[in-house]
Design a protein around this nucleic acid. Sequence first.
DNA 1: CACGTCACCTGCGTGC
DNA 2: TGCACGCAGGTGACGT
Length: 279
Amino acid sequence: MPELPEVETIVRSLRDGGQFGPSVLGRRVDAAYVDWPRTIAEPEAESFQGLILGRSITAVSRRGKHIVLHLDEGFLVIHLRMSGDLRVEEAFDAAGEAVPFRKHDRVGLTFHDGYRMVFHNPRKFGRMWLTDNTRHLFKKLGPEPLDDALTREDFFIMLQHHKRQIKPLLMDQTFLAGMGNIYTDEALFAARIHPLTISHQISAEQAGVLLEEIRAVLQEGIRRNGSSIDWAYRGGTFQNEFQVYQRTGEDCPVCGTEIERIVVGQRGTHFCPHCQPLL
DNA sequence: CACGTCACCTGCGTGC
DNA sequence: TGCACGCAGGTGACGT
């Protein structure tokens, strides 16, 4: 469930407490459980278990789709990829017995006060890095779409610098950090831009509209606590606002034309052929 | 540089 | 019921 709005929702819950459990701030790691060692991208999984012990979480932030737990020494960075999920829960039952981990729980960090944070990750794509410095992880990431420092003019110039199909370009994390399949389809629909449009051919005015629509769908996604679909229910409600995503064959909410599905860059892509003509 | 393909994984819905 | 297949919110490594 991981695009920018879902990651931001999790970050806020980890920081402030919320629908996914209490805050992790101030909690100290007392024990580490690793079910799938490849989850630990850095350092080696064996050394990770010892190195994380005794460290406390002092802040929680986000960069693109990465969750950043700031520790009193270093950082724990988490990427959920396709199917990752975090929850914070009590690690022991009333009798003091450890609550068993669930199927697909890959990593568990038990805190000094009896709570734990669990990384649930059915498809095993998600990764964690325990590192003293995050620079090497983020150096290639593009700007944050919600950062006001990114202007419409900047965005137009960025588009002019590439001759690529707009959809894969928006999903390229080195171009812009945080967009995924859902919010890209929704933003392109809102901006009335065909997903195969070559970035280079988008006018300055259209670029401005696109940036604003990207921000609008991301902000609405955050406001609704992200999207919940199928197996990965997270309590979000943005799925109820989808205009085109997963609505193949249904009527376009604007003009009534049937929503089409094509494949772009190996990803299912949904758009209205009438509202989003390929110029 | 841009794009297609495959790989990494598991689970679910569909159609035969 | 069983089974093959296609599909899924992501990304990185290749080859052309």
